[in-house]
């Protein structure tokens, strides 16, 4: 059984929701990412999205763009990010790992080789934000073959596409909360509830919401409607604010603790 399914089943039995942080791999270094993910797990994260830094992150706002730039300064590669999975398991992390990457790095890597490495490194799910269903046939076929969940995104503009997208969904459906790129939002349109109801009706797998969610209040609001809540930019910003502390051995624990407290507060 895929770890993502197992985790959602456990949470459901306990009537709980998943908190799914997104972080950018290699921000500020790959070693830091290992410790940060351990910290996220300790703070109550139920799964984690490992973002692969990319030169042209079309779906991302300034916070995640800056994180990508920090990681790319040290030439972090797709291979490095996948291998983080293995390192995280060695470091004792047990929560499901989801790789979030734009399509071109996978395409250049070679798809079969990519999935081989993903499986070897204990990654359970995959999100590709620039690969709509029209373009994902080959990746989907291989993902099924390797039992990696290809998690699709649906947007408020998806409308009649929602049914087609959710029908093929594995793991969960990633609902984009509102129009726009990633980044914190102060409020959400009331139409988001209708959108979530529509996705819920057509989906056989759990649904999670992301894009713009940054506070405990917002997490709590969406826990009413969703099985999981994804928080990205707000956590990446917290990491960014703590980079100076993380880079100094004397203050490293303090930096990690700041991140832990932020995530624990989101969990409530």
């Amino acid at each position: 059984m895929n770890l993502i399914d197992q985790k959602f089943a456990e949470l459901k039995a306990e009537q709980k929701n998943a908190l799914i942080p997104f972080i950018s791999c290699g921000d500020p270094t790959l070693d830091d990412t290992v410790d940060i993910v351990k910290t996220l797990e300790a703070a109550g994260a139920d799964m984690v999205e490992l973002g692969v830094p990319y030169s042209d992150p079309l779906a991302d706002g300034p916070v995640i763009q800056r994180a990508s730039e920090r990681a790319l300064k040290y030439s972090v590669t797709l291979t490095d990010c996948i291998k983080l999975g293995g390192r995280l398991r060695e470091a004792g992390v047990t929560i499901p790992l989801i790789l979030f990457t734009y399509y071109n790095p996978i395409y250049q890597f070679g798809m079969e080789a990519f999935f081989e490495l993903v499986v070897q490194n204990h990654i359970s799910g995959l999100i590709v934000p620039d690969l709509p269903i029209e373009e994902d046939q080959e990746l989907r076929r291989l993902a099924e073959q390797y039992n990696i969940h290809l998690i699709p995104l649906v947007a408020p503009t998806s409308k009649e596409r929602v049914v087609r997208i959710t029908k093929q969904a594995r793991g969960f459906v990633y609902c984009v909360s509102s129009l726009g790129v990633t980044g914190e939002r102060s409020d959400f349109h009331t139409e988001v509830d209708e959108f979530l109801d529509l996705v819920r009706r057509s989906s056989d797998v759990p649904i999670a919401i992301g894009f713009g969610i940054s506070s405990r209040e917002q997490v709590a609001r969406f826990e009413q409607k969703c099985d999981g809540v994804i928080v990205g930019s707000a956590i990446v910003r917290t990491i960014e604010n703590n980079v100076p502390l993380l880079q100094n051995a004397a203050t490293r624990e303090e930096g990690l603790n700041n991140i832990k407290q932020f995530v624990a507060a989101l969990k409530g």
């Binding site: 079309l58 399509y103 709509p132 596409r161």
Partner: peptide
């Protein structure tokens, strides 16, 4: 060619 864009843009 093709359409490699975020889902939000697909309907547009």
């Amino acid at each position: 060619g093709g359409r490699y864009v975020p889902e939000t843009l697909m309907n547009a």
